[in-house]
């Protein structure tokens, strides 16, 4: 494992924990898209079914379990524990427009036509677009709390660091996974506009608000 991959995983973990703590401490999930969080829970579940079939390393197993546990806890907080604070009126992205095409694509373009591999592929495709309901919600309300923008920054940074990891792996191991790389590029592109706003506004101490 190279440094980029490790930093990417840490960034991902930080994002997930940041969101969890934000909701728990403020006892509110205002401004958070429950739909994006459900999609991420689906992504982790579909991808990490290999916990039951393949053992990679203790590190991989622990991270997978933590990601799944945190993700389901977040969904539970939004739709049950702090349901009253959930901003459902602004969370109106039609998720079927993401789930159906990515599911079809996973059946058509995959490494191997087996159930686990199709689910893995589906999770990769779905992850690349799963943040859209959240970004849509922000564009609709025109603003985001600063802590929410930190969450989005680290979540976006994670896949960008994975891009560096894949370049490194190609150089050193001649390894590349076309499905992951193309989806990772698409995923990172979705964050570019946000990265720009984050650097030009949030890092300068201003609140993220859209004109």
């Amino acid at each position: 494992m190279n440094l980029f991959r490790f930093l990417g995983d840490l960034s991902h973990l930080l994002a997930i924990i940041l969101l969890l703590l934000k909701i728990w401490k403020s006892r509110s999930c205002a401004g958070i898209s429950g739909k994006s969080q459900v999609l991420f829970a689906v992504v982790f579940t579909a991808r990490y079914l290999d916990l039951f079939t393949n053992y990679i390393s203790l590190y991989n197993t622990c991270m997978k379990v933590v990601y799944i546990a945190c993700s389901f806890t977040t969904v539970w907080m939004i739709y049950s524990k702090f349901k009253a604070t959930y901003d459902g009126n602004h969370d109106t992205f039609r998720v079927e427009f993401l789930v159906v095409p990515t599911a079809i694509l996973a059946f058509l373009v995959n490494h191997d036509f087996t159930p686990l591999e199709i689910l893995w592929t589906f999770s990769i495709y779905l992850e690349s677009v799963a943040i859209l309901p959240q970004l849509f919600m922000i564009s609709k309300t025109g603003e985001a709390e600063t802590i929410t923008t930190h969450y989005l920054f680290f979540l976006g940074l994670y896949r960008a660091l994975y891009l560096a990891n894949w370049i490194r792996r190609y150089q050193t191991e001649n390894f590349y996974d076309q499905i992951a790389v193309v989806s990772g590029v698409v995923q990172t592109i979705f964050y570019c506009d946000f990265f720009y706003l984050y650097v030009t506004k949030v890092l300068k101490g201003k609140k993220l608000s859209l004109p």
């Binding site: 991959r5 995983d9 991902h12 991808r47 290999d50 079939t53 393949n54 990679i56 390393s57 991989n60 991270m63 997978k64 990601y67 490494h111 191997d112 087996t114 686990l116 591999e117 893995w120 994975y162 990891n165 191991e173 390894f175 996974d177 992951a180």
Partner: peptide
């Protein structure tokens, strides 16, 4: 280099 259906990343 990985076996079929094996993914070593998260």
């Amino acid at each position: 280099p990985l076996a079929d259906g094996e993914h070593d990343e998260l």
